[in-house]
Design a protein around this nucleic acid. Sequence first.
DNA 1: AGGTTGACCTGGACGC
DNA 2: TGCGTCCAGGTCAACC
Length: 272
Amino acid sequence: MPELPEVETVARGLAQRVAGDIINSVWIGRKPEPLKSPARKIAALLEGSRIANVRRVGKHIVVDLEEDGQKPRGQWIVHLGMTGNLVLTSPDQQVPKHTHLIAQLASGRELRFVDPRRFGRLSVHRAESAFKAPGSEPLDVDFESFARLFRGRKTPIKSALLNQRLLSGVGNIYADEALFRAGVRPRRRAAKVTREELRRLYEALRKVLSEAIAAGGSSISNYVDADGEEGLFQFDHRVYGREGEPCLSCRSPIKRVVIAGRSAHYCAHCQR
DNA sequence: AGGTTGACCTGGACGC
DNA sequence: TGCGTCCAGGTCAACC
């Protein structure tokens, strides 16, 4: 579920509420799938740490941890996968099914990682080897660097947008939405997209992502933010999930095709 | 080397 | 109600 705007929303919400709090103890479920680091390493780094900050890198939530004297201690990295969420609750809230980790905070609250499909991943990094995402942040990268990412790539432009080693944080919804707004068909070979089209794509992607962040994430389903509240938001999907419905510009039906195993939505009339 | 496919999971929506 | 099928916002390893 969560792409860049959703992860940003969760991270911001948590940063506001838990920065400065201390993790007293950690419970980790028995199913090992969501853990990239061993459970005892995760627990060891988290327990006794103060949460300095919570932020987003690509689709990852980075929890910066520090010692008492503000000395950096390491990072707790949370990837939400398709269905994961990191929720701040009071301990008397019922623990939902598929809760894989609970961090008890000194303030008396709990930070819980819940993920039914278990595609999410948890890991820890020591302070010496800080986490780094391989791709460029779409909201930070300049146009020349953005354009360079696609040079010589025969893969469909849609697949290139989703490639996290190129761009960090773009997922299926916002890739489709950006391509629609730029007027570029998802199956076009990345290398063949003209400079002018890339310029439109660059602007469209930034616009779509920042609008979605401003709206607090996507409206597509039961997405909830760090408080466990439904995102109020209404970000308009113009193509995603609108197969067969009329294009909002030209009324021709939105098409859905599969590209590299992911569904892609576009308007055959407006996108070339 | 670089691109595409299946596997990994659970659950909700839909058709019969 | 129940069962089967399809679909899902992500990412890898394995394949060509």
